[in-house]
Amino acid sequence: MIVGLTSVARVNPYATLLIDELRRRQVPVDFVLSAERGHTGDLWERWKRRGFAGALEAIRRRAGGNSPGPQPLAEAASERGLDLSLPMAAVCKRTSTRLLLVQSLASRETADAVRARSTEVLINAGGGLFRRRLLEAPSRGLLNAHMARLPALRGVDVLEWSLLLGEAPGVTVHWIDGGVDTGVILGFSPLEVATDETLESLRERAVVLSARAIAEQVARLQQAEGTVETSGSNAVPQYFALHPRLRQRAAARLMENVD
């Protein structure tokens, strides 16, 4: 089975973990489709939106250190002997994976490149909203790990929304269709909440779980094992990026649960 990943970050710990999880299940990744956007691009975007103060905030955020609490990503990397700080180019070199640098994941040329490689499954390891032409390029489709239960919690920041709404946190693997998190669902994996958990560490734990859950589903597809598919739905509302005050509330909710 020919499998590819999408990526937009120069350093992409999730893609690095995914490649490793898939290799452990004898599913080699054929290529990484990378449309890297540099730090300058991020700064320009902030400047346009929030002016000078916004750009400064982006620089401060970038310079910020790790938060206290568990560090599941670092632990997962150490268990597997992975260096998650490596750029995708180096990761691809180490794992004999082709790195296809593209201008944009939305372009026709990118979709053509995916089709030309007879790709069966493309996995979302970064890229935001995808154009239909890319969704239709791999023969089986584009897979995503969504950090909450679907179809109930569509949208972004859904891990935090799960906490706010008292829903069990977890990861849903689903095919991406033209809607927002409305594609066919392959499965849900619950996420355990550790003691001393913070929002950051829970998100990291969800990243580790996402890589595992998606690799399991791809392995199943490769072995032609039956998958349990559930329809997605756009009948439920979409959740949007959280305001910092509600993020704080989600963090407080997490502390209450841990206590």
């Binding site: 929030r50 706010l164 709404l165 509302p237 949007f240 305001h243 005050r245 509600l246």
Partner: peptide
């Protein structure tokens, strides 16, 4: 109904930040 209430609140807080600015 927290799912509905928090969704309204979330967007309102963001829009209000833009007014504050």
């Amino acid at each position: 109904q927290p799912a509905s209430s928090l969704r309204w609140l979330n967007s309102a807080l963001k829009l209000l930040d833009q007014v504050k600015a």
